[in-house]
């Protein structure tokens, strides 16, 4: 059964990159433009992994993680955060909130795929 990854990013090109990389490897993709959108789209639909940007309008990545950890439907779902080098403080905040996996932008597609596969394979 194909595993589903939800990608949350306000940049459509980033979502595109993630989609192309992962669907090529057999993953189903669910896209959301920000935290709020992700929570709505996820709803009662459980996915195997959530990949989220940190800085997004309406609801940022950290808030999303916090919300997911409070949500019985999604609290154990791994979250892979996409971050830049400059967001180290954010990273710690995110880790405290429960996002244990991080990948630093810019990344190459195979780096992303490797990170995803380590988490859900």
């Amino acid at each position: 059964m194909a595993k589903t990854v939800c990608v949350v990013d306000d940049s459509s090109s980033m979502r595109q990159l993630v989609r192309m990389t992962l669907s090529g490897a057999g993953y189903d993709i669910l896209e959301a433009v920000d935290g709020q959108d992700a929570l709505e789209k996820l709803g009662a639909r459980r996915v195997n992994l959530i990949i989220s940007d940190v800085n997004m309008p309406r609801m940022d990545g950290i808030s999303l993680v916090k919300a997911l950890k409070q949500n019985a439907m999604h609290r154990f779902t791994p979250v892979l955060m996409l971050t830049t080098e400059s967001e180290d403080a954010k990273k710690r905040e995110g880790q405290a909130a429960g996002a244990k996996a991080w990948i630093v932008k810019p990344f190459k597609p195979d780096q992303l795929l490797a990170a995803v596969q380590k988490l859900i394979m």
Partner: peptide, 10 residues
């Protein structure tokens, strides 16, 4: 497990 990791994946 609660942190979202599955050793089986590793």
């Amino acid at each position: 497990f609660r942190s979202g990791f599955d050793p089986a994946s590793f």
